[in-house]
């Protein structure tokens, strides 16, 4: 039971980091990232490949963050010129592109076979201790991103972010370049997404393209909407509730054993859809935040 709870806690933690990533991007500047999974994948492959090649895991995670933010830059430069909706479509396309590269560049990613043998930290420890230590790492990184988020909002920097949310034209009139702030925030959020991916890779020990489908992105979106955008605590609570719901659904099979695992997967994903619909209909404050007029 303990190992099961630890496993769930780790998954919750990774989803929390993903949700924080969206919460930083959308909550702080209104940038819509429908391609979050792309950064998650980039982080997983970056850290996976480097550590397989012998790099230490910590370095792998660090490089993953760097790769995530660097990959976000070209998108960021485009993002600041686009209407919010177009950015949504562009990021959706970017996620598709990254998945295609993961599938087809066999020399790098081993294609559909996937990249195995990714080192897992604390391997010399007994399994429970190993999982507990891994969870500690996850929690530590959550704390880091929460503190980063706080520093970004409660500071002169955050004053400009709030101004951008309020009236972008007026930010130009006080001599500040809104695009600079947006691109930076997009990069920081993307780094968080990549770190989540790196953690997942080291937890499972294996990455393959089928882990990086669109519903990863929208699980995080749902968590953010449930928790309420623009609040760090909201992202954490939302991720927790979502994971509770999905793990809880596992027990459904104990009650209804005639449902197969494949069918259960369909039910879960249909539920993602249903919850997204219900959230937009009945929990508008979760997504509106400061962006009701956009």
């Amino acid at each position: 039971m303990t190992s099961y709870l630890l496993a769930i806690a780790i998954q919750v933690g990774i989803l929390m980091i993903l949700t924080l990533s969206l919460s930083i991007q959308y909550g702080m500047t209104g940038l819509i990232n429908f391609g979050l999974v792309a950064f998650y994948a980039l982080g997983a492959y970056a850290s996976g490949l480097l550590t397989v090649a012998g790099w230490p895991i910590a370095a792998g995670i660090g490089v993953a963050a760097l790769v995530g933010s660097l990959a976000s830059l070209p998108l960021g430069f485009i993002a600041v010129r686009l209407k919010a909706e177009y950015l949504a479509i562009v990021t959706l396309g970017f996620a598709e592109l990254v998945r295609l590269v993961a599938l087809n560049e066999q020399w790098l990613t081993r294609g559909t076979t996937g990249l195995g043998g990714i080192p897992r930290p604390f391997q010399d420890q007994p399994p429970i201790v190993q999982a507990a230590l891994f969870l500690a790492v996850v929690v530590f990184l959550i704390v880091v991103f929460v503190l980063v988020s706080r520093r970004l909002t409660v500071s002169p920097y955050g004053r400009i972010l709030a101004s951008i949310r309020d009236n972008e034209a007026a930010v130009n009139a006080i001599g500040k370049n809104p695009s600079r702030f947006k691109i930076q925030i997009f990069a920081i959020g993307s780094a968080a997404g990549a770190v989540a991916g790196a953690l997942q890779a080291h937890y499972i020990g294996y990455v393959s393209p089928d882990q990086f489908v669109a519903h990863v992105t929208f699980m995080a979106w749902m968590a953010m909407i449930l928790g309420g955008t623009g609040r760090v605590s909201g992202a954490l609570i939302g991720a927790f509730v979502i994971m509770l719901f999905f793990e809880g659904s596992r027990f459904l099979r104990d009650v209804m054993p005639w449902i197969s695992e494949v069918e259960m997967a369909s039910v879960r994903l249909a539920a993602v859809g249903l919850l997204l619909i219900l959230a937009t209909l009945y929990r508008p404050q979760g997504i509106v935040g400061d962006y009701s007029s956009r």
Binding site: P156, A170, A173
Partner: peptide, 25 residues
Amino acid sequence: PREFTHLSVRDNLSAAVPEQSGETL
């Protein structure tokens, strides 16, 4: 007028001060 409606008057003004250290990452 395009004041920042959700910011306090003081923050409205503070945001306009150029070259602030706290505005660079």
